[in-house]
């Protein structure tokens, strides 16, 4: 396991590095997934490019109009600790706060959580509901891609080898929008979700949606706008359970995952009712 460690200062330099090394390079942000993969031999990069010295990627930016930018080097705990964000997007900070342990959250990043493309990523359900877009950059340009299109499968994203995820853009939400997050795990201590879910309630646009994680290769969003005026938890739970395609594995059976998805939706509706 021998590789070159690069610590570019600018996004341009990072773009150039990836342009020349492509698939032989790994981007390092928090490292909490990459170091596990390095140890297991699942990742064998020739170059590891650390994004943490790039000033603009360390930005967590609240725009005046309510838009949000989460740079690739922003740690999970930075968004958990952001009071404004907590008030605005409880589903996102709630999901973030449910990841692993406090020490891990001090290193792990939001962009990393998303880009690892694990079905059980706890920030993904809320980000999916918020209409988040991932900004992909390369030496030749940049593009934005919706989160649900970014994650193309288990551990697979739409990122090209010469690109890096510079950050996540969250659009401004309708007035009074709120989100919640709920997670099912085997212990109360740190664990990967066997099912997780978020709920968005946007009174301005009469939007009511649930996103479910851990139960499909890609995040599932269930539209419930039709019941905005008369939220029906049981019906919502049913629809969510019908929308997922869970597997049985060491963490849970498909049946339990399905039923727990229903449970999570019911609890999210409890939260909605306050």
């Amino acid at each position: 396991m021998s590789f070159v460690y690069e610590r570019p200062r600018t996004a341009e330099d990072l773009g150039k590095l990836l342009a020349s090394h492509g698939q032989r390079a790994c981007v390092l942000a928090g490292g909490t997934d990459l170091l596990v993969a390095l140890r297991a031999g699942h990742a064998r990069p020739e170059v590891v490019a650390d994004v943490k010295a790039i000033e603009e990627l360390r930005e967590l930016r609240h725009e005046a109009d309510g838009r949000l930018f989460i740079g690739a080097a922003v740690t999970i705990n930075r968004i958990v600790d952001d009071a404004r964000l907590r008030a605005m997007h409880g589903g996102l900070t709630g999901g973030a706060g449910a990841i692993a342990t406090f020490a891990i959250r001090n290193r792990a990043t939001v962009v990393g959580n998303v880009s690892n493309a694990s079905p059980c990523a706890d920030t993904v359900p809320a980000l999916a509901l918020l209409g988040a877009e991932v900004e992909l950059r390369s030496a030749t340009g940049s593009r934005r891609i919706g989160l649900r299109d970014y994650i193309v499968g288990v551990k697979q994203t739409a990122r090209r080898a010469d690109e890096f995820a510079a950050g996540i853009h969250v659009p401004a939400q309708g007035k009074g929008t709120r989100t919640w997050f709920c997670k099912r795990q085997r212990v109360r201590g740190h664990d990967l979700a066997l099912a997780n879910a978020a709920l968005i309630h946007d009174p301005e646009h009469k939007k009511l949606r649930v996103a479910v994680g851990s139960c499909s290769p890609r995040p599932v969003v269930v539209e419930l706008d039709d019941m905005f005026d008369k939220p029906d938890a049981e019906e919502a739970a049913k629809r969510a359970m019908a929308s997922i395609a869970p597997i049985s594995d060491v963490r849970a059976s498909a049946e339990y995952r399905t039923d727990m998805t229903g449970m999570l939706v019911r609890r999210l509706f409890d939260a909605l009712r306050g």
């Binding site: 460690y5 928090g30 490292g31 170091l35 590891v48 406090f102 891990i104 001090n106 290193r107």
Partner: peptide
Amino acid sequence: KLVNACMVL
């Protein structure tokens, strides 16, 4: 900041 030293290069 508290970190797991095994998760840092």
